[in-house]
Design a protein around this nucleic acid. Structure first.
Lengths: 335, 335
DNA sequence: CTTTCATGCGACTGGTTATGTCGCGTTACT
DNA sequence: AGTAACGCGACATAACCAGTCGCATGAAAG
């Protein structure tokens, strides 16, 4: 391929999406780095030619000119998105839409759009793919609390660059919002919330900040202080997120009703699950699972359809939960 | 941009990923369609030049030559991914990995890779982004039953092109696998399963096929017969998926304990949720939700932490479930 | 087995395109 | 006001491109 065509491609990749931009001079030096030695004049000419075929924006008020790529456009060069890939994007969109903060999703939008266009372009003249697929999300489908766009962006950038960030934050127990400087260590996405793990300048201990409680955020360009031994996985497994009730895995033995719980046969709860058919109406499974809150919820809800054979202590715990719940519903019903 | 450079790009986009391929003659006619009038000779030269800079594969045994794009080659995207977009891809990967069949995910792999490289390239010399973010998926984290790659591909392609497809399938009640011809109407992804909705040739009625029960699949190039009035949404809402217990939404009123259910305040269950603070330890919510099985599970598990004020029939239903569950656990405990 | 046809490819050539250079005008900063 | 950086038109040269022809090859057709 000729030098020129290759340079065109390289240049296109260097032009960032609006509202960011790059100057002709920057382009010149970055092209030099990549081994293209051209004069400024050529670059100026190139950009003009390219903008005939690509949605390039130019700000002629600043000098040197600043070039950007249209905010919503994206072009996959090689090779065009094939059908299965486009489909998968479409699916990904359906899955992620309720999960990720809208601002985060907006960064994927150009790619989803590209996929969508590919599907519509396909032979199917009716373009009815959207009528053909549904994703049904589990759970109650409640709304996620909205995370402020600036906050999310500031936090992610700070994390990546190991900078501090300043947040206007109000913890549940604080009487009013405060401006705090955070040393971020990690981000945890746990439906429906996004947690920032880190320390607050001037206060003790590692904290969890729920991102939707922050109303403003900006990066502070100073390096964070981070304990040598901090490890996000250890932190999670220490139980700080209230997920694991204990570090010990649970060896679970259930006697399940058919056909209600049939799906457990095909979607085992864990790698080591052993399933034993008992009779037409019953089967047993034995499996090791994490000792989580979600496990308890599940067992409580499924208690009608299965017997918890082991461990006894967990059965008793569930029994107790059921008893308490029953007491409440009865009281409410009589009131 | 010169005619030539534009043609290079267009050609690159036309070359499909291995194992698919395109002949020089096809390229010629497709370029013609796009308004490039060039001789075969030029196309031949172009491909050779391009293969110096791109991983193009050529099969010289067939005549005309067949060209493909390297299967694993990364898609270059214009403009290059910016930091937030790359981060979002990384997140999307974490969310989707447990949700989508591996083969489907593999189609996104080039994009994930591109994002990952972008992150590593970033100023952060440690490249420790992976240590900074976790996604914790809810639920029990059981394995999804694996969907055969060919099956998934055949089904999606058939759906999109409105073709029939042939599957080797064994429904739960069938003594052994059978080869069936399906007229696919729609796909439903519902964790943890993927359902194909359609009719089976020679049998009555609209069926649900659980994709992981199919072991082989291929597209049959004949148009499907599809009832005029079939609509995927109507189908789902007709209760066929066992999701909605009734079409009537439920007007739910709960008295909840603080702080256990505090999250309901910030992540409302529905758009119309009204929250009322009662005292230090209690608040009430009123909200309209779908009448689903998931709702019942959730209420059963949360009965310890809230009173179901309305509707009474639902409270009684949950009470009954709790009673039944309690009976079982007691029996099991005494056995 | 021969013929025929489509394709690949080397070589040549006219024509197009790309690019460095220069000079001038404009703008922004000092 | 002076100066430096940038944009841009013009131009000449060099590089590259693309059509054409001829021949070789291999597959399909007769």
């Amino acid at each position: 391929m000729s030098n020129t065509a290759a340079r065109y491609l390289t240049m296109l990749r260097m032009v960032p999406r609006y509202p960011r931009s790059i100057t002709t001079t920057e382009l010149a030096s970055r092209l030099e780095e990549q081994g293209f030695s051209v004069t400024m004049r050529s670059i100026q000419r190139d950009l003009e030619k390219l903008s005939a075929d690509f949605p390039l924006l130019v700000d002629e008020n600043s000098r040197p000119y600043r070039w950007s790529f249209d905010r919503n456009a994206t072009m996959d060069i090689i090779p065009a998105l094939d059908l299965p890939a486009a489909l998968t994007f479409e699916l990904a969109k359906a899955y992620l839409s309720p999960m990720l903060p809208p601002r985060a999703l907006s960064h994927l939008k150009p790619h989803f759009d590209e996929a969508h266009r590919t599907l519509l372009r396909e032979k199917n003249p009716l373009g009815q793919w959207p009528d053909r697929v549904r994703v049904i999300n589990r759970g109650l489908g409640g709304a996620r609390p909205p995370v402020d766009a600036d906050v999310l962006e500031a936090v992610t950038e700070a994390l990546l660059r190991e900078y501090q960030c300043k947040l206007t934050y109000q913890a549940r127990s604080w009487p009013e919002p405060e401006e705090i400087v955070v040393h971020p260590f990690g981000l945890i996405f746990r439906d429906p919330n996004v947690y920032l793990i880190g320390t607050i300048e001037g206060r003790e201990g590692v904290r969890q900040l729920v991102l939707h409680r922050a109303t403003a955020g900006e990066v502070v360009e100073e390096l964070i202080e981070r304990p040598e031994d901090f490890d996000l996985d250890l932190y999670i497994h220490s139980g700080a997120m209230g997920i694991l009730k204990s570090d010990e895995p649970v060896y679970l033995k259930l006697r399940c009703d058919k056909p209600v719980l049939n799906h457990l046969i095909e979607s085992p709860l864990g790698f080591d699950q052993i399933t034993t058919e008992i009779d037409d109406k019953t089967f047993e499974i034995a499996v090791t699972v994490g000792d989580t809150q979600d496990l308890r919820w599940w067992l409580t809800a499924q208690a009608v359809h299965c017997d918890i054979l082991e461990p006894a202590w967990l059965r008793e715990e569930i029994e107790d939960t059921l008893k308490q719940g029953l007491k409440r519903t009865r009281r409410t019903g009589n009131a």
